[in-house]
Design a protein around this nucleic acid. Structure first.
Lengths: 193, 193
DNA sequence: TCGTAATTTCAGTAATTACTGAAATGTATT
DNA sequence: AATACATTTCAGTAATTACTGAAATTACGA
């Protein structure tokens, strides 16, 4: 793929942002390239375009696959692997949310749950456990949000995104309506599926 | 501060997760310690507890301040700096969302807006610009969400968190209501402030 | 303004992470 | 089963990031 100046700028930028996003430069650049490319690319094409080693591209593609951010496909009469990104940016974002939850939240959630099983032994630990409990509760909720997001249809997601700060207004509306057929405080506002 | 086994486990865990969260081990450990501590701590106490160099703690605290994740305070008759984290985990989470937006989204958004000002020169670039446009739009929306979140009261935030997958149901409700006093499709569902 | 305590800076070094090239492994074709 | 092509693995090296200790700076009280 030809690197016009604006495409190159984007690719280099993704390389630089990589470290902030928890991936390395090459992985960032590979992703940027695949994201912009009209057609799927094979490893050799990526190698040539980016000017990095073939093995580096191989490792980068494996990493991107572990994030479920690229798709592997084949063409008849060609046994090389071709890679592409999903068309839909919302789908991409959803994958990103899910994978970051797994990597950045779940391990801590596991530790917190384990730790909170044991009773606190002294004063300091008492307080520490309270704090861990608060963090745990919040992380559970965020984690649940992430799971719930995955279930939404693209349409619903798109609407949710556009809502923005209008959400609290919706909540107010809901309150007014609830006054009619009111039940006593439910712990969680989801009705069980 | 005494490191009981569960406190130590938490501190070490935060150190290890640091690299995934975009901070280094020491910064993670310092934060964990401050988060769990009942009272504010000064740099020397942190140094002693973690067994790292005084200068490392100094740099770590600066980093945490740049994230706005710790607060500096003083006690009468003591000129050392004492650090603590906010009580409210929701407030902490909000700060985190805001700072990550600044660091992980805004630079890319800036690049995309700049790039999309220029017209595409050829076929490949044409397609690339369309893709950049899609990404830009999505990032604008996510960025706006982040901004909007900052404006919510703790109460509203708490309710929003508990909503989870019930949000689409709310959307449906809204649709039904909107049928009454319906306007023609607004581009964004927020009413301007 | 001098002395002392606290903090920051920074050059040097340690530790970690990223990348390369060569060799090994896998896979389809003849 | 031999060949050709594609991909992966991995040891060695390069590059980056993290950490330390000493020196410099800052802030305050005498």
């Amino acid at each position: 793929m030809k690197l016009t100046s604006s495409i190159q700028a984007f690719v280099l930028h993704f390389g630089e942002m990589g470290s902030r996003w928890g991936i390395n430069r090459t992985v960032g650049q590979i992703y940027a390239l695949l994201y912009l490319s009209k057609d799927p690319l094979n490893a050799e094409q990526i190698t040539d375009t980016l000017g990095v080693s073939r093995s580096n591209v191989s490792m980068g593609l494996k990493e991107l696959q572990s994030w479920r951010l690229v798709r592997l496909q084949h063409f008849p009469g060609d046994r090389r692997d071709y890679f592409s990104t999903p068309e839909d940016v919302l789908e991409i974002a959803l994958t990103l949310v899910e994978e970051r939850r797994k990597r950045e939240l779940d391990p801590t959630l596991t530790l917190l749950r384990q730790t909170l099983m044991e009773p606190a032994t002294d004063q300091d630990e008492q307080h520490a456990h309270e704090r861990m409990g608060q963090m745990c509760e919040l992380m559970e909720q965020v984690s649940q949000w992430s799971h719930d997001l995955q279930k939404l249809s693209p349409k619903e997601l798109q609407r949710l995104l556009m809502l923005g700060s209008a959400v609290p207004k919706l909540l107010q509306m809901k309150d007014k309506l609830s006054l009619v057929g009111a039940r006593s405080k439910p712990h969680r506002e989801n009705s069980p599926d």
